[in-house]
């Protein structure tokens, strides 16, 4: 799991005590667009799609990303309680591990080393996404010009 890749076995045991394992069936919604985010999810098995849902009743689901085991999503929920920007939907039966925001805050107090390792992994992940989004924007601008 990329998020916990830098943790030692002892540190992983601490994190495992805070995790919640959840099973979802194919087609089940993990979280909704616009919902207040409370937890980050790490994929253990199966596939999950992150996508945008339109506002009309027959709106289609526009897939933005497809995630496989080891990936994580909903990470902004660890930082603030802003509404989710996209919907997460199970594409096949999957097992996810949820990590609650308040448990992360507790980790910052009791195990700052573990929390900072997780925070650095989160920052790296967001940096990669920001760079990818920047490259896409550059490509679109050059295509337009």
């Amino acid at each position: 799991m990329a998020l916990f890749a830098t943790l030692t076995q002892k540190e992983l045991r601490v994190v495992r005590a805070l995790q919640h394992e959840r099973d979802y069936l194919a087609g089940e919604v993990v979280f909704d667009q616009g919902e207040e985010g409370q937890a980050l999810y790490v994929m253990v098995s199966g596939r999950v799609a992150i996508g945008l849902v339109g506002s009309t009743p027959d709106a289609s689901f526009t897939v933005v990303a497809e995630l496989a085991p080891g990936d994580f999503f909903g990470e902004m929920a660890l930082l603030d309680d802003a509404p989710r920007m996209a919907q997460a939907r199970a594409l096949e039966d999957c097992c996810l591990v949820a990590f609650f925001r308040e448990d992360f805050m507790l980790l910052l107090e009791t195990h700052p080393t573990i929390a900072s390792k997780i925070a650095i992994q989160l920052a790296r992940h967001m940096g990669q996404r920001l760079r990818a989004a920047g490259s896409r924007a550059l490509l679109s601008r050059s295509a337009l010009s």
Partner: peptide
């Protein structure tokens, strides 16, 4: 995969 967005009714 979250950020600011409209709150659901």
């Amino acid at each position: 995969m979250t950020s600011d967005g409209p709150d659901r009714a």
